[in-house]
Amino acid sequence: MAHADTTHAPPAHPPAHEEETTTGINHRKLLMWVFLGSDCLFFGSLIATYMVYRGQSIVGPYPRDIIDVPITTVSTFVLLMSSFTMVMGVAAARSGNQKRLIQWLVLTIILGGTFIGFQVYEFNLFRVEGLRYETNLFSSTFFTLTGFHGAHVTLGLFWLACLAIMAARNPAGRPSDLDVDIAGLYWHFVDIVWIVIFTLLYLIGGFDGPPEAGHAAVQGWNWVTGLIS
């Protein structure tokens, strides 16, 4: 990049975080996007596992007994709105408005925390109603997928809390707009993963019952129970 250095005068207002890179993209930002791309593979595998075992649980509770679509629609909406407050936080950071940044971050944390609250309530209710992690194929794949998503959200909450505290404490240690931007990318990614989970596990798969007679899972079950004699 020596070429660019010698032929161009330095910008009049060099942003603090801009560095010369071969791609023209800040390394940290690039890293975050590479990570998010790889996280697609992670969640893709978990979602595929759920879909492979979907409708093969031979004991209840089945999704149609236990999935509450209206409540989860509300929590989905809450998470979606937290993406909006997050992007407003990023905009505030970019325009250098520290006070606004803190306000939007706190709002995002409240909305994200509300989403986690819904999930804690849901998991607890399922457990009390007899759907434990080991109950059936549905419960194992459901809790693994939504649990890992919840863990992502929780990590994001810690991240945003750190940024808010950094921004509130002193001007010297305050997060750069790139710091907020990268945290925002992570936060939005968690939101889009939930968009997929909500559609597949709740809107489409939330009414699944036991497998039909003649299904391979039922045949296998009958075979084994016939042998226990």
Partner: peptide, 30 residues
């Protein structure tokens, strides 16, 4: 929200590559 529309196209390629790989993995498993 992730303002990818306004970013360097390389970021689109990286993300879509991960997304497509993830979809292929999911489809293959199913």
């Amino acid at each position: 929200f992730m303002h990818l529309k306004f970013e360097n196209p390389l970021l689109w390629q990286i993300f879509v590559a991960g997304l497509v790989l993830g979809l292929i993995v999911a489809l293959s498993l199913v």
